[in-house]
Design a protein around this nucleic acid. Structure first.
Lengths: 358, 358
DNA sequence: CTGTTAGCGCGTTCAC
DNA sequence: GTGAACGCGCTAACAG
């Protein structure tokens, strides 16, 4: 039989598919062999046809193969191909926190655009932890993933190593702390400047900012852009009007406690993201400050729920759908491309002004 | 965790191996062979040790193997094992829409609890599309995933087939439309009843409901539970007070347009989920109705943002973290277990009452 | 243009 | 207790 045997395999004999030795977890799946038999060709031909190797395959043969594969509902076992090619159609998305609507929206966008190109996404929550990020970076290699989308990268030894190994990595929203790599995202510096311009155009010269973690290029650049534009207009915020609030609801709330005093408060506040703005808003409610009447607030990311639950929040709108496409294209460029892929155009952003409520 | 070793080139006679034929995509990875050589044993021994096959392996040998693997930063190529075992450590999560905070939170929970058990999650957006669901069901088999968590299952031919094939599937939040299977979620019927009881206890007898799609067991059961409790109290809603609103913001808004008329409106409304409640709320704002003063609103799911942006919304709180653990345990039970795993305890829910604002 | 063949890296019977 | 050899399903050389 087949299971163990030094029996010089006579191909014809086992062609009849004697019982397989290994117990199958669930229902026998049809392999390339079955298709070959049904089409009356060799497995090599099946492989070629199905992989679109155009050696001017006989049309009639090709049709027979496709038909057989179709009738059998054949699906190549990825494990075989992965072993042979050291490559899968898997793309890993490393993400800080899937519960964050901003990240979730990007994840969804990436997933669907990957799917359109016949790839499958593995989702890994890094929690912004360098050790976890490194773990996944290695683990994903062990899975022979074809590429990695790194959302919210943090600095880590493994990241530097991966970069040096020239792994196909697309850095999403946040540039690699150690430099290099392919970046997909908006021009955060310009976005920061745009917010400043908007505030100034409204006549708000007493501005404040609750910035995110400055090790994040996204947070840092929008912060710097905002400050530089304000400075150029001679409206640089006073020291106490610059506070750090992380990227969380709680951080925004805590920052607001520092920023908003009973007697005096800034006229306009730029928040690191929408969550921070929500936190700030809660404090405003507690103090009886109306937004945007008493205080103008600008968030970042434009949470899809804003129109419904935060009609008071102006924010920087991010083209979520564009992220997926851009990430996929960046990876494709790395796969196809020679050596160093040139940086792609940054994604567009826009200011979404709201103020209908309160 | 295994220490990283960027140690390239172990000088040991690599010359033994004739030049490899296939070009490696990126940096040669150390295989089981390398570990075996370094430990001075055969690959079989390495495999046994690392897989914990207790054939009373010589402790000293075992230690040598572990050390070698560690020093080399060895990571088994999953492809090899997948091919041999027809099994990976991948678990697929099929999810209707990752952008939905409710689903996203559950996804995060599942990912981390899977990770704790050394498994990796593949995320697939089904978009509630039966065809897409079937596609993924098959595709995931082609990847030899070890299990599938099916969130928001819809009826489809492939699902029935998968169930018949006894694939390891855990149905999350929504029971399989065709029956059978292992379910992880709360007791939606009881939750619906609890909402009704709450309304009644507040003295609201003029109630309405905006229910979700009734083909979903979750939506249907909470709807039925709500109605039955109301009926028993002799407070069954009038026909016009029962409307369908899907599970979306827009659906909630549209339903609210039907439900809320200038002259007259119900005193309390039970919404299919929080999104629907947000949609309803927008309409309330437009009509100048205060929540909960003029109208009591009960959502479902308890979106994590509620405390911050919807302090007016009472809702049914779901134990997100518990989902991941329960799903993982359900799968483990299927993997380990014999035949039919008995149904697990439903997850707990609770009413979260809010009404601080407006 | 198609068939034959040799592994990809691993887990696993069999001899020893 | 350990090693040698086979094959999982597939792709890519190489014959024919």
């Amino acid at each position: 039989m087949i299971g163990q045997a030094h029996t010089r395999g006579t191909p014809e004999a086992d062609a009849q598919s004697t019982a397989r030795a290994i117990a199958r977890p669930a229902g026998r799946s049809i392999g390339i062999q079955a298709v070959a038999e049904r089409a009356g060709v060799s497995i090599a031909t099946v492989s070629r046809v199905l992989n679109g190797i155009k050696s001017k395959a006989n049309e009639e043969t090709e049709a027979r193969v496709r038909l057989a594969a179709d009738e059998l509902g054949y699906r190549p076992a990825h494990a075989g191909r992965a072993l042979r090619l050291r490559q899968t159609k898997l793309v890993a998305l490393l993400i800080p926190d899937i519960s964050n609507a901003f990240y979730a929206a990007i994840a969804g966008s990436i997933e669907s655009s990957l799917r359109a190109r016949d790839h499958t996404m593995i989702l890994c929550n890094t929690n912004e932890d360098p050790r976890l990020q490194d773990f996944y970076l290695e683990e994903m290699q062990a899975y022979h993933v074809r590429g990695i989308a790194l959302l919210g990268a943090v600095d880590s030894p493994g990241l530097a190593a991966a970069l040096a190994d020239k792994l196909p990595i697309a850095f999403v929203n946040r540039k690699p702390p150690c430099g290099g790599g392919v970046f997909v995202g908006i021009d955060n510096h310009a976005a920061g400047r745009a917010v400043a311009s908007h505030f100034l155009s409204r006549g708000y010269r007493d501005c404040a900012v609750i910035h995110g973690p400055l090790h994040s290029s996204a947070s840092r650049e929008r912060f710097e852009g905002f400050l530089s534009a304000l400075r150029e207009a001679g409206a640089a915020p006073a020291g106490p009007n610059i506070v750090s609030g992380g990227l969380s609801l709680e951080g925004g709330y805590a920052a607001a406690r520092l920023l908003l005093k009973a007697e005096r408060h800034p006229r306009a506040i730029f928040c690191a993201n929408d969550l921070v703005a929500y936190g700030l808003f809660r404090r405003c409610r507690e103090l009886g400050l109306a937004v945007p009447r008493d205080i103008a607030v600008m968030g970042f990311d434009d949470n899809p729920l804003n129109d419904w639950v935060a009609p008071w929040l102006s924010t920087v709108h991010i083209p979520y759908d564009a992220f997926g496409i851009a990430v996929t294209e960046a990876l494709v460029r790395i796969w196809d491309g020679a050596g160093e892929p040139e940086a792609a155009e940054p994604l567009p952003f826009s200011l979404r002004l709201r103020g209908s409520a309160e």
